[in-house]
Design a protein around this nucleic acid. Structure first.
Ligand code: SF4
Ligand code: SF4
Lengths: 154, 154
DNA sequence: GTAATATACGACTAAACGAATCGTACATAA
DNA sequence: TTATGTACGATTCGTTTAGTCGTATATTAC
C-alpha cells in the first residue's frame, strides 16, 4: 500500500518535462533543484526512464532530458508499475506478479483486495501525464475531507 | 501499495474465529494449521489483536482465542491500518501518518494518490468481518477480468 | 584545443523493514 | 502432575529502500 520515493521522484521529473515539452532539454541538475530531489539519485531514475523510452537524453553541454513520447501516451500507472513493480495490495490478486496461496479456494477477503486493486489500477492507468497536468494542486482541507464527512481514518 | 503478511495472517485467523463465533475458543495451533500460517508467528499476531481488543484469550488446557467483539463491529480497514500502519499510497495524503512535502503547493499528481487513498479506504473501512464473511471466494477467472476487458495490466 | 558542463554505467553502502524463530515463564483442565 | 495452552521479550536473517561514489564519455562555448 505504498509508493516508493523513486516513483514519486520520477513523476516529479516527468511533469517538469511536460512543462518544458518542445522547449529544449532540461538538465538533471535543474530537474533535481526544481523538484527537491537528490541529484545523483535522480540521474539513476532518468536513466531508467530513458531505457523505458519515456524520455530521451541530449548529451554534452547544454544537454539534458526531454520527453520522448507525447504526454497523452504515458500513464501514471506505467510509471508506478515500473518502479514499484506491483500495483496489487497482495500477490494473490496480481496479474504480473501473481503468487498462488493455499487459501484461495476458501478465502473470503481476497475479493476485497481484488476490488481495491481493480479500482486503483483503473484510476492510475487512465491517468495520462497530459490529463493530470490539467488538474489543480490539492487544497490542504481536501486531504481531511473524507474524515470530516464521517468516513474513515486514513 | 502492499499489504504485509502479518495483516493477511491476522485476517485469516479472524475469519476462522468468525466461523467459530460463540462456539468456544480455538487454539493457535489449530488456527495456524487451518490457515497455513507459522504457529509462533501467529502467536505474536494474536497477542497484538488481544491488546487491540478484537480477540480474547482463554488460558490453560482447552484454551485458545475467541472473538471479543461482534463480527459487525470489526472492519478490515482497522486490521489493515493497525498492522500496516498506513493506508495511503504516499505520506503526503495520509491523515494518521501525514508528512509534509515541499512540492505540495504545486504538485499535480498528488490528487490522484488522494483519490486512490480515498477509495481504498472507503472500501476497507466499510467492510466488516460479518459483511465479508457473507461473500463467496473469488473464482480464478475473476482475477484476470480487468485485463480481459481491455483494461490495465496489474 | 581545452575547459566546462552534460549524460552513462557500474559498484557500493547504511539503515530500515519484514518475516519470522527461540527461550522461557505462567495458567489451567483433565 | 502433566499435557496443552497463552504471555512476553529477545534475537536473527534476508531483502528492500534510498541513496552515494568513482569514473568514463559526449558536446559545445570559448
Ligand atoms: S489468504 Fe486470501 S488474501 Fe491472503 S494470500 Fe491467501 S488468498 Fe490471498
Ligand atoms: S511530490 Fe506531490 S505526491 Fe509526491 S510527496 Fe510531494 S506532494 Fe506528495
Amino acid at each position: 500500500m505504498k509508493i516508493s520515493r523513486k516513483t514519486d521522484y520520477a513523476l516529479r521529473a516527468l511533469f517538469t518535462l511536460v512543462e518544458h515539452y518542445h522547449r529544449g532539454p532540461v538538465s538533471v541538475r535543474e530537474l533535481a533543484r526544481r523538484n527537491d530531489v537528490p541529484k545523483r539519485f535522480l540521474e539513476q531514475i532518468m536513466l531508467e526512464m530513458k531505457v523505458k523510452g519515456w524520455v530521451a537524453s541530449v548529451m554534452g553541454k547544454q544537454g539534458g532530458y526531454v520527453l520522448a513520447k507525447s504526454p497523452e501516451s504515458i500513464t501514471v500507472g506505467q510509471v508506478v508499475r515500473h518502479f514499484d513493480g506491483v500495483m496489487s495490495p497482495i500477490a494473490c490478486v496480481s496479474v504480473h506478479h501473481y503468487q498462488p496461496c493455499s487459501q484461495e479456494p476458501i478465502c473470503r477477503f481476497r475479493r476485497l483486495f481484488l476490488d481495491v486493486r481493480n479500482h486503483a489500477s483503473r484510476l492510475l492507468e487512465s491517468a495520462t501525464l497530459a490529463s493530470i497536468y490539467q488538474g489543480k494542486p490539492v487544497r490542504p482541507e481536501e486531504v481531511f475531507a473524507l474524515e470530516l464527512t464521517g468516513g474513515a481514518g486514513i
